[in-house]
Design a protein around this nucleic acid. Structure first.
Length: 580
DNA sequence: GCCGTTTTCGGCCCGACTGTTTTCAGTCG
């Protein structure tokens, strides 16, 4: 991983190496708190909105000043950022192979059992484990038996390539089916989907359902017997876990109403946020668990999340912020952002019609958008260069423009903006001539090719496009597709600064597999003075609602209403364009 | 490894479930 490179390692890579050290230390059965310290540091680094070197250059924000980072970790982080390696990591990698790390990903295997398998059977990789399972020798290892062997076998056959994370929008479908199913059960009072789903993470590893009910047994039975349940993983008096046919694991927990808020807080996470909250409780002589807030044995709160927060002297913190990325400090200081919400949106600035790769025609899209109560929408069909989308040429856009004029003449309430998603070519020039571009109300530009350019060329390409006077929005700026393609290599700080300087707005694309900019990039961009837009990028009328996935991602990025151009009234939007 | 209205050592969030154990360890969230 650490190879010859120029410039410091990006924060995400430093965080990854810190996590690797944590995992290796765990396999090495190091002090659990030492392990936690490395993982905590990884999270803190992930939460930084500026490159490590920038933070560290400011005497006020030296690494040592960050929560949970002391002298040792600060040195380690500096060295990792500068060189991509550190002696501890090298030493650990020599002792423990990457294959062994993979074993840690298997559910049911922790450091103790991995060590037992290694010393007892010589298991040093997933492949070794498969062999041992076939030979039925796992049961001979002390502490493991035939049941454990069977569970491991099921675990490996169910997920041959490791635990998949499912797109949040896909998981939402199963979540709402199950939640509705449970709401219909006798004695059920409240049902919430908690976990990373509630925090708005772009992908989820499992679903956490929380129910308050008078008769847990009934709820648990209804859950384990629900349609689409493939396998019962575990079951107790207060909950159960199942795997769905779709492969998704779902955990159910049933609590009494007086514990619902505490349980919701607890099962929403993140784990790091909860630990921080519990520590605050501890400082006040309180014990906080999923059943409530306790002083001694006396319950002093827990019916609502607000009661939990109040017990530790904090206002309620939106779930999207609960990552221990500074939200607790902000809550304490009274500086939590007022997050943008779906109700704030007055328009949608990115959607397609049958004129390019959309599945519904202009009239259908406009009619559907009008039912959302929008004051304006922009129709952004593709330009010709994106071949697969059958983009429009200059003449095609003129025809479409005339059709939009006719629609605007008919409909008084919602303004349809003439727009385009014009392709940015490999050299940073645009796929339509300047005269054509000048005719649009608003021009969105984006990249659909040459994702693999070296960082410096990619940066120059994007910045050149941003400097084109016609360009108002840069759509899905990094080009990532979740689980398929990473962000383009570019100097994103430089891109964000150029966008801020030029007055170009950066999109948070609502497509469930894009969500681009993502949460961290949105936060960073806004901190550098960038204005965002949130767009559905709908390719059908039904997909217009997908804008909410973009809103949730922006909320995770601490984005407030004022930073999102399509929360503004139409007049403001038009006035704040670059060339108005 | 971090940290201090338990300050430089001795703590570090808290509980559920499973399996193998004869009283609890390991794992997970």
């Amino acid at each position: 991983m650490a190879s010859s490179r120029d410039g410091p390692l990006p924060n995400t890579d430093v965080a990854r190496l810190l996590r690797e050290i944590g995992d290796l230390l765990e396999l090495d059965q190091a002090n659990p708190f030492r392990i936690r310290a490395y993982r905590n540091a990884a999270r803190v680094i992930d939460g930084l909105t500026e490159p490590i070197a920038v933070v560290d250059a400011n005497p006020e924000t030296l690494l040592e000043e960050l929560p949970g980072i002391g002298e040792d970790l600060a040195h380690t982080i500096r060295q990792l950022a500068a060189t991509g390696g550190v002696a501890l990591l090298t030493r650990l990698r020599r002792r423990i192979s990457p294959d062994e790390l993979e074993l840690l990903q298997i559910r049911g295997l922790g450091p103790k059992r991995i060590r037992a398998l290694k010393s007892g059977l010589g298991v040093r990789s997933v492949a070794d484990l498969r062999r041992a399972l076939e030979e039925e020798t796992v049961r001979t290892v002390p502490g493991l038996g035939a049941r454990s062997e069977a569970k491991l076998r099921a675990e490996l056959s169910a997920r041959p390539t490791g635990p998949p994370r499912m797109l949040r929008a896909t998981a939402a479908h199963y979540a709402s089916l199950l939640a509705d199913h449970l709401r219909a059960v006798d004695g059920v009072r409240q049902v919430e989907v908690a976990g990373s789903f509630r925090r708005g993470r772009e992908t989820v590893g499992d679903l956490d359902l929380l129910v308050s009910a008078t008769t847990p047994a009934k709820v648990i039975r209804a859950f384990t017997e629900a349609q689409g349940v493939r396998e019962l993983l575990q079951q107790g008096d207060t909950g159960a876990s199942v795997r769905l046919d779709a492969g998704l694991q779902v955990d159910l927990r049933v609590v009494p109403a007086e514990s619902f808020g505490a349980a919701l807080y607890y099962f929403t996470g993140s784990k790091a946020h909860n630990i921080a909250i519990r520590r605050l409780g501890q400082e006040r002589g309180l014990k906080i668990n999923e059943y409530g807030v306790f002083r001694g044995s006396r319950r002093i709160g827990g019916r609502t999340e607000r009661e939990v927060a109040k017990a530790v002297g904090l206002p309620w913190i939106p779930p999207e912020l609960r990552e221990d990325h500074g939200e607790i400090e902000a809550a304490r200081a009274g500086t939590l952002p007022g997050l943008v919400s779906i109700e704030d949106l007055r328009g949608d600035l990115q959607m397609h019609t049958t004129s390019s790769d959309g599945r519904d025609d202009l009239e259908t899209m406009v009619r559907a958008a009008a039912t959302k109560g929008y004051a304006y929408v922009a129709i952004t069909d593709h330009s010709p260069a994106v071949r697969v989308t059958r983009g429009l040429d200059a003449a095609g856009f003129r025809t479409q423009g005339a059709a939009i004029d006719r629609l605007n003449a008919k409909r008084g309430r919602m303004r349809v903006l003439k727009s385009v998603e014009v392709d940015i070519l490999a050299d940073g020039s645009l796929d339509l001539d300047d005269r054509s571009l000048a005719r649009f109300d608003i021009v969105t530009a984006s990249i659909h090719s040459a994702f693999e350019l070296p960082a410096d060329r990619q940066t120059r390409r994007i910045v050149r496009a941003l400097k084109h006077p016609a360009v108002q929005v840069l759509a899905h700026p990094t080009g990532r597709l979740i689980g398929e393609r990473g962000s383009m290599n570019a100097n994103w700080d430089q891109v964000f600064r150029a966008a801020a300087e030029q007055g170009v707005w950066l999109e948070v694309n609502g497509q469930p597999s894009r969500l681009d900019l993502d949460d961290a990039a949105s936060r960073r961009a806004v901190s550098l003075g960038v204005t965002l837009t949130i767009g559905s990028d709908a390719h059908s009328a039904a997909e217009l609602d997908g804008i909410r996935w973009g809103v949730d991602q922006a909320r995770r990025g601490w984005v407030s209403k004022a930073s999102v151009a399509n929360t503004w009234p139409l007049a403001t939007l038009l006035r704040r364009r670059r060339r108005s």
